[in-house]
Each structure stands twice: as C-alpha cells, then as structure tokens.
Amino acid sequence: MSLGLKEPRASKASPQNPASRKPASRKAPAQGRQPGSSIDVQRKKLLFPFVGPAFVLYTVLFIVPALGAVWISLHKWAGSGPMKFVGLDNYGRIFRDPLFLSSFGNTLLLLFVVGTAIFVLAFAMTLVLRDMAGKKVVRNVIFFPHLINALVFGVLAGFIFNPGGMVNSLLAPFGVTDPPKWLAQDNIFPLIMVTLVCTTTGYFTTILMAGVDRIPPYYYEDCALAGATAFQRLRYVILPLTWDVFGTCAVLWTISSVKIFEIVWVFGGSSGAGVPPTQSWTAAVYTYVNAFSGQSTPAYGAATASAVLSLALISVLVVLLRRAMRRDAVEF
C-alpha cells in the first residue's frame, strides 16, 4: 500500500524533473543545456528541510515495518518466541493454497467489478446531478453512506436478510413461501459487493462532481451550439477535462479496495465474533486470519508473506493503471 501511495507522487513529479534536475547538478552543466532558473536552485535547497522530516517519518512508520514484514515472511513464527528461518517456503505454500488464490480472486473482483460499477454509476450520477435542482442536498445524501461504519451494514444485513427478516416478511404477502437463502455462505460475497457499490459510489461522485464543476460553462454552450448529443458532450468535453480527477480516483479505489477488510469481517461470522466463511475472504482477511484468528497458533510468517504478495501485486496494478491512464493534462 505504501508503494501505491508513492507511485502517483513520483510520476507527478517526473514531467518537470528532466528539465529541472540537470542544471542544478554541481557538475558543470552539459553542453547545449540551459542552466536552471534561480527559482529552481532555491527549490533544490529547500528539498531536504521540507521533504526530510516527512521522509524520515514515512521511513520509520511505513518503509521499515514493510521491510520488517518481508523479513518476518521468511520465517515460521508464532508472533513471539523463537523464529525459524524457512526461506521462501511461506510464499510457495501461499501460491499452492487454493484459499489464498480464491481470496485474492475476491480482491480482484472488488477492484475491477465493483470498481467498474462504482465509476459507471458515479459518472452517470455526475451527469444527472449537474443539471438537477437541489444538487447540493442530493450530493450530501449520496455521500452519507460513506460516513457510516461498516459494522452498521453488517448488523443491518441481518435485520434485512435473515430468514425472518424484513425482505422475507415483505415477500410473504406476495405468496413467496420459499424465498432465496439470502445469507447462505455463497451469497455473502455478492452481497458485500452490492453494499460496497452503494456506499462508495457517493464518495467518488462527490470527487468527480468537484472536477466537473470546474469545467467552464461556455464549453457546454459551445456543445449546444454545435448540436452535440449528451454522449458526445461526455466524450469530447467532460471526460478529457476531468481525466486527471478520474485517474486519481481510480488509484484511490485501487488502493482502498485492496485493504477492504472490515465489511467482510462483519458480514460473515456473527458480526465479527467468528471467522467469516472462506467464500467471502479477501486477501486482507486471509492475512488477518493467519495472524489473529484466535482459533489456532498464529502464523506470522504466512500472514506477512500474503501481505507482501498482495502489496507487490497491487503495486504492479497501480503502475499499470497509471500507465494506462496517462494523458497530458488539459489546461483550462
């Protein structure tokens, strides 16, 4: 996750770097290159005092623990007591474990399927809300679910979908005597996906709307004059002008989707008192169960190995995503 956070920063900085770095170099500037402006030189001087403290904190709080996790992942360890070095065994075991693969598959489902649903809906809502009366109120309303603790949804799911719950009570008058088993183990993960779409769409709609609101109205007037359809307006005006916002949202979702844990935990297994059914595990849940399930000896080596693997795979995804989304920002 830490790598994922670093990536956008690094690539944001990169466009200006090639031009600005060389001149400030203490060596004589290469022939044919212009020396940097004094502002650039000042900037360089301020790099350490400004970036240093943050970097030290970041290193101590994130990078060192991440490297520590890599170290632990090479051992068999119960969290305290003796550590036994096992090399890459934990990684091999995880790759052979069908449970890790299905858990990671669920993480990818969240990332791509739920992600696609969220962004399609968020864009659709953005377009509808732009022209709507009372859009400020609506914006608050759709943002609201994001503020609620996932535990609430876990408990609520029980009220709504239990055999004697709200849905079945409402269906009964219509002659549905054998309603679907809503909370059967296989249905829990789809339910989690739907819940995530409902709770997260409003959050991204809000961010996207802030981007859309920046677009000056004369572009829309121009569209109207040119006789553009709603789709053309989206394709040629809104999307290009909000592409950077959209890209940031995509990275935010990628990072947060990998960490999705608590909603899975509270949806299955008695709202957190037990381990949820394996069908609904994500990579984060898999990691947690290995270390802290409370049902067996903790396996910190396997837990950290799965965390390191998820981190690596997600870092790759974020880099690819950034590559795919790279466009020159449109200035307006």
């Binding site: 029980g158 055999p163 719950g165 008695s270």
Partner: peptide
C-alpha cells in the same frame, strides 16, 4: 430449524 443455513448470529 429452517433458515439455519442462511442467517446471521444471533438470529
């Protein structure tokens, strides 16, 4: 009990 396989503790 019917529904035991699709319910949420402590229902």
């Amino acid at each position: 009990n019917s529904g035991y396989n699709a319910s949420k503790f402590p229902a």
